[in-house]
Amino acid sequence: MIDFAVFVVALGVGSIAAWQVFHWIYGKKLLSDKKENIRVEANILLEKIEQVFKVVLAEGYFTEIYDHNAKKDFWGLFKTTNKALIIVKAKVSVGYDFSKMKFRRDADTRRLIIEGFAPAEVLAVDTDYKFYDINQGFVNPMKHEDYNALLAEAKAMIKTKAEGSDLPVIAANQLQLMMRQLASSMKWELEMLPEAKEEI
């Protein structure tokens, strides 16, 4: 009787072991089949080409900690809170759009006269975002549009901070130096009218 019991237990353990081995081998085959069937498609559309003459003359690197905390009241019965902490790292490029420059040339005296110049502007904001401490309300979860709005707001704040920094002044100094060197290399004299200097 004991031999029969041992036989039954051994048979049960063997069956379980065989099932595990079969499952492990077959499971690996399924995973490998899935990996082989992965297909990636990308469609890149070129919508528009424009000719521009914009020159970057100063770059600044910013880090912003953006703390979002929004509460929503539901009919005065209860409130839900959406919280997110975003760390934004950005490279801001400041320079000039030369298509906005007003100038004239005096070939007789070999002078390039700058009559007007648009002020330095933010030409590009390259950002990298990381989300931390996301806490969503059960009734009012954050949607894809909410994330996009948060990122747009954080980017706008970086741009405003860059415009109020020393970057436009540095870009203006670089512009004058570049224009003078350019005119000098062609044996021309550069003249900036007072209005143009004020705009820069």
Score class of each variant (00 low, 15 high):
66 Y>L: 03
43 N>H: 12
191 E>I: 14
107 A>G: 05
189 E>M: 07
160 T>Y: 04
158 I>A: 00
30 L>I: 15
150 L>V: 10
79 K>M: 10
70 A>R: 09
28 K>R: 05
138 F>I: 11
132 Y>D: 13
2 I>Q: 07
161 K>F: 02
77 L>P: 00
21 V>C: 04
17 A>I: 12
108 D>M: 12
95 G>L: 01
162 A>R: 02
85 L>M: 12
86 I>R: 06
98 F>W: 13
128 D>N: 09
38 I>P: 07
143 K>P: 00
196 A>Q: 05
172 A>C: 01
181 Q>Y: 01
13 V>M: 10
165 S>L: 04
155 K>R: 15
48 K>P: 11
5 A>E: 11
105 R>D: 13
4 F>C: 01
147 Y>I: 11
32 S>G: 00
6 V>F: 13
133 D>W: 01
55 V>I: 10
171 A>L: 00
65 I>M: 03
71 K>M: 06
61 Y>A: 14
51 Q>D: 14
10 A>S: 14
50 E>F: 06
139 V>W: 07
149 A>I: 09
113 I>K: 03
134 I>G: 04
50 E>P: 03
46 L>Y: 04
47 E>M: 07
198 E>S: 13
187 K>D: 11
108 D>Q: 14
178 M>I: 08
125 V>S: 06
7 F>D: 00
137 G>Y: 04
166 D>P: 01
140 N>S: 14
53 F>Y: 09
69 N>A: 08
115 E>R: 02
131 F>G: 01
27 G>M: 11
170 I>M: 03
52 V>L: 04
82 N>K: 11
53 F>P: 01
158 I>M: 05
172 A>P: 02
31 L>Q: 12
18 A>F: 10
184 S>H: 05
141 P>F: 09
128 D>Q: 06
